[in-house]
Design a protein around this nucleic acid. Structure first.
Length: 506
DNA sequence: CTAGGGTTAG
């Protein structure tokens, strides 16, 4: 399936953007970015302001003549206000013949959305349909909002397509729904449609779309979209610029991220945090730590996310003393009471080679998550203490904590380096039974197979392919297939490398 | 009624 999307953006004459026409490809989406004339639709005055900008906008009562009807409406609205959905539904059920105001339907649908009551929402939708009420932009938007809030994005989208709305909120809401599902292509597609309709994006639109572009990983689009952000007048909007910085970091464009940061007059906590985590993610932990130092110097109050990123920076640098200092600083701010912080702290000690400290953090934690267990397991695996790692793995299962792909990957490496094939096979069975699949898991399984006799090899490979089929994209499957062919050779190479290592050890 | 940053493997 090929989706061809052409976005016409009027691009501001920012010096970095010079090309007249870009043709950018990503996955199955083709972006055609034209530098079009100034008469572009985007420059026309916003007429979306002429329309309602909020869903529960003021509505005229259509049937004021019948007092009886108005009373029903009032009663239902009162139930809605106190959040009593069941009573509202009962009331409607008992008066099926009653024609209600659109406003009343909106109130009920809002309540359904708030309560995530898809079933009731559908009932109301059916009622609206069976009574032949026409879906205008207001009622339609409310239905879309209800369906998407209740998790039925498909039905929400179906209605969204059937109505004409210039409500930016609803477009943002729809785009965000797809972004949350990981369908960034669809989100971008809606963005393009929205521009075609002449709807002006707001800061929420940009935050969402920048996140999507970051995730899609089309590195050429960064500066183009940046130009568009500037052109639209959001160059100093902190949420948009923060998203922009984040996008540049995700595209490994450190220079542009830094430039934005340097020229931003007002930096909030998130700006600082984005810088620190951005540097760490790009293997520039030292730079990240410097930003942290500047942050404290500028008097900004740090938060949990800051501390998590900074500890991660210490872990990445592997400087134990620095980590200990940050740990002490975090205790003062009582961040050591948060599970997420302790997980990072544990990982830091483990990566700095201090397993005793890591274990101490682990034992002192009130709430241990999968991440806590996995971090410790990974730590022992790195230290070649496979027995301890395997023991922890068994303990965590005993405590009823479900291992995830990260845990399984670690434990497979522990099994591999330990040479304990039996345990490895046990884990493999566990993986199959619990459908824990990822590329890393498959790789770890293959890695472990270096220790397995060659006649078992193809069988296990088949199993890997079998279990991976549903979730791993076709491209990866192809890669794995070719890996299968190359594997014998690869295996020989690794074996000879291993024997070399053995020789050095001896 | 929406948004920007943060944890675990290799």
């Amino acid at each position: 399936m090929t989706k061809t999307t052409s976005i016409s953006l009027w691009v501001s004459p920012v010096n970095q953007i010079q090309s007249q026409k870009h043709l950018l490809h990503h996955k199955n989406i083709k972006f055609q970015l034209n530098q079009t004339s100034r008469s572009s639709k985007l420059l026309s005055p916003s007429f979306n302001t002429l329309y309602c900008t909020r869903i529960p906008a003021t509505l005229s009562l259509t049937s004021t003549a019948n007092h009886q009807v108005t009373d029903y409406n009032d009663d239902i609205c009162r139930f809605c206000e106190v959040g009593n959905l069941q009573k509202t539904m009962d009331f409607i059920g008992n008066s099926e013949e009653t024609i209600l105001d659109i406003k009343t339907y909106c109130h009920i649908l809002q309540l359904c959305a708030d309560s995530k009551a898809l079933h009731h929402g559908r009932t109301i939708h059916n009622l609206i349909c069976s009574r032949g009420i026409e879906l205008d932009s207001v009622l339609g938007s409310k239905l879309v909002f209800m369906y998407v809030s209740c998790g039925d994005v498909r039905e929400g989208r179906r209605i969204f397509n059937s109505i004409v709305t210039h409500n930016v909120f609803l477009w943002n809401f729809m785009m965000n729904a797809y972004a949350k599902m990981g369908d960034y292509e669809e989100s971008v597609y809606l963005f393009q449609k929205m521009l075609e309709m002449g709807i002006e994006p707001d800061s929420y639109t940009f935050s969402c779309i920048l996140k999507c572009f970051a995730a899609l990983g089309n590195e050429n689009i960064g500066e183009t979209i940046h130009g568009y952000v500037l052109k639209s007048g959001f160059g100093f909007d902190s949420t948009v610029v923060n998203s922009m910085i984040s996008l540049y970091f995700k595209h490994a464009n450190i220079d542009n991220a830094r430039k934005l940061f340097d020229h931003l007059p007002e930096r909030d906590v998130i700006t600082w945090n984005t810088m620190i985590s951005g540097y760490v993610a790009n293997s520039l932990a030292k730079k990240g730590f410097e930003v942290f130092t500047d942050m404290i110097g500028s008097g900004v109050t740090v938060d949990l996310a800051t501390m998590v990123s900074v500890v991660a920076a210490c872990a990445s640098m592997g400087v134990l003393t620095l980590g200990q200092t940050v740990h002490a600083y975090a205790v003062k701010g009582e961040f050591d009471k948060k599970t997420k912080f302790n997980n990072t702290l544990l990982d830091m000690y483990s990566k700095c080679g201090d397993m005793d400290a890591a274990l101490k953090v682990f034992k002192n934690m009130d709430e241990k998550s999968v991440v806590s267990w996995t971090s410790l397991i990974a730590g022992y695996t790195r230290k070649d203490q496979s027995d301890k790692a395997i023991e922890l793995f068994l303990n965590m299962k005993k405590k009823g904590i479900k291992p995830d792909t990260f845990t399984v990957t670690s434990i497979l490496h522990a099994c591999a380096s330990n040479g304990s094939l039996e345990k490895g096979k046990e884990v493999h069975n566990y993986i199959n039974e619990n459908q824990i699949q990822s590329l890393a898991v498959s790789n770890a399984l293959m890695d472990m197979n270096l220790l397995i006799k060659s006649d078992e090899f193809s069988l296990i490979l088949m199993m890997i392919l079998e279990t991976s089929k549903q979730k791993i994209p076709t491209g990866t499957q192809v890669a794995m297939m070719s890996q299968q062919e190359e594997f014998s050779e690869l295996r020989m190479r690794n074996k000879s490398q291993k024997s070399k290592l053995q020789l050095i050890k001896n």
